[in-house]
Write a protein that binds this DNA or RNA. Structure first.
Lengths: 339, 339
DNA sequence: GTGAAAGCGCTAACAG
DNA sequence: CTGTTAGCGCTTTCAC
């Protein structure tokens, strides 16, 4: 549509209302003592001109911008999305805006964006990214920083992540609870921390129950359905049959489910399956639908935002690694006796 | 990590370098005539203090903020992501930052965010969202607005979308080219514009080839794999066999592929299949992998950003609906004689 | 060459 | 009650 004139200033409003700029400010912000009639007149004039106070000018005075930066090391993907939603939930209420920067994993680009954010005097910064692996700290900055769904190498930073170990433990406990005993772990590349942590959670839980996770029942590959199918094929070919599988992702779990079904193995009749991520697209399209670990990313985002806001308001930010517990979502793939 | 002191100002740098504030500005911005020695001294002082010019103050003077807003009517999803990447590509070069607002489809929230963006004096605004259906215009604003992957009801606005009709036409032409004649269209809900446009593209192409798309070969349902499977089942039950299927999404196509395979129908031997979206996760996990329509969202984002930047620099924004052509990506699902 | 002063849009403190 | 003044951090004349 057609373009409006440049944004009006307090002076424009003042002139129209026949008062001074200071009076406009007071009238519009409900400060000072004004005659009701004057206040009204100013409001009408402001309305008429479509006046909105310039936040840059306000920020200059207040010394804060009500803006936070989000620095992501990876393209905005499926995991960043619910996290961002959580962050917005907590920020939106206080009308803090979000400046988005995607470094695409390039450290140079990250430095550039960081400088940009600092130049814009953001009140705080979130650092995030797909990989859960520890990443270099941004170092000491004039504003508080929260590493969300991402962990800084520096223990003095505050990092908030979901608990991979506990999540996998939940999955494993559930398999034990439905009577499974010979449990396998199929997951992504060993170089990913989350692969190792989820394995640890699975193994620990089995050990605590007097069972074990022998190397032959640990299959590590890629985060793909295709690998899930291959892994299931391998499991079918081995001498001893497993009756439960903890998968490192919903994609893998779905691949496993497909392969098992096509090989005539009943899921969950003969084998119980648990995924990880609670990714709706995968979980719902899978046959049978997947019991899976919900990493509560939205909640993680909310928590991260609350901590950051608190620090911005002068509170203590805290430091170290905060582990947020996962939940288990029950669906058909795991329950031999029906949901 | 520990917190740094508040950001230093030009005066801090000036004091350290033993010059005046004005000189600092000139030295750091390469303006005015300064002795090389002085310039150096200022630069060293600035470096030492970690000085970054406050962009708010700069923006106040320049009258522009080098910030644009992105107003999305839907959570940042799979479609918004590549679009954003494209936008960042074009903006990043000029170090324009992005203020992100997710209205979640709530008009009230949208108004709030719009006010917020205007208050922050963004230089321009992108409007986007998952649905391709026409949406109400934001109306006349003091800054240029581009509707990207979204169309405004007002023809005076500039809307840039990919060409659903042409995309479906590409898919259909390809099916014809590999020798298919009895073609079906399986897609999402009829209330979605993209469903109807893609149908139009399919039908037009068939008519142009002397063929037709009878109602019995049009199956509209949901954007899910599950619907794809149901639709394929229906097609298998009908009297006349189809030999090619244009699907409204990759998810649907994958569901169709699964159902056909499990019913013993060879894809692409007996039936050729084309999807829409080129969504890696679906396209690669599908058996066989999917030939599909690539909507070039990243390119769309780049174009939208370039147009907006041009308008911000005082150029003409333009208006009306701009249709960006789709591409076809060939994989196994469509080619009876192998790729 | 460099410093001092004015002003971007706004608000807070102080006059009147 | 309302207007005037000063100043947030920066840049840009204009004197010196």
């Amino acid at each position: 549509m057609s373009r409006l004139a440049a944004a009006p200033t307090v002076h424009d409003v003042a002139q129209l209302a026949g008062v001074s700029a200071g009076t406009v400010s007071k009238a519009l912000n409900g400060r000072g003592q004004l005659r009701e009639e004057t206040r009204k007149r100013v409001q009408v004039a402001a309305e008429q001109l479509g006046f909105r106070a310039n936040r840059l000018a306000k920020g200059l005075i207040e010394g804060r911008t009500y803006t936070v930066g989000v620095l992501t090391s990876d393209s905005f993907g499926r995991f960043t999305m619910p996290l961002m939603n959580g962050i917005e939930d907590s920020l939106g209420a206080g009308s803090v805006s979000t400046l988005l920067c995607d470094s695409r994993g390039d450290p140079l680009r990250e430095r550039h964006y960081l400088a940009e954010l600092l130049g814009r005097r953001v009140d705080g910064i979130f650092v995030t990214g797909r990989r859960a692996d520890p990443r270099p700290s941004l170092g000491p900055l004039p504003v508080p920083v929260v590493y969300a769904m991402s962990r800084s190498e520096d223990p003095l930073d505050l990092s908030i992540v979901y608990d991979d170990v506990q999540g996998a433990g939940l999955a494993t406990s559930h398999l034990l609870a439905v009577g499974r005993k010979r449990i396998a772990y199929v997951s992504g590349p060993a170089r990913h921390l989350s692969t190792r942590l989820r394995q640890e959670g699975t193994e620990r839980t089995l050990l605590a129950a007097g069972l074990s996770l022998p190397p032959a029942r640990v299959l590590l590959g890629e985060w793909s359905e295709s690998w899930g199918r291959s892994a299931a094929h391998l499991l079918l070919g081995s001498a001893e049959r497993v009756d439960g599988i903890v998968c490192g992702s919903d994609q893998i779990a779905r691949g496993v489910a497909d392969e098992l079904r096509e090989a005539g193995v009943d899921v969950p009749g003969e084998v119980s399956l648990v995924g990880f991520d609670n990714w709706d697209v995968m979980v719902e399209a899978s046959r049978p639908q997947l019991t899976t670990v919900e990493p509560n990313l939205k909640k993680l985002g909310q928590l991260a935002a609350n901590r950051l806001l608190h620090a911005i308001d002068g509170g203590e930010l805290g430091s170290g690694l905060v582990l947020l517990p996962c939940d288990l979502v029950l669906r058909q793939s795991s329950m031999p006796s029906g949901p």
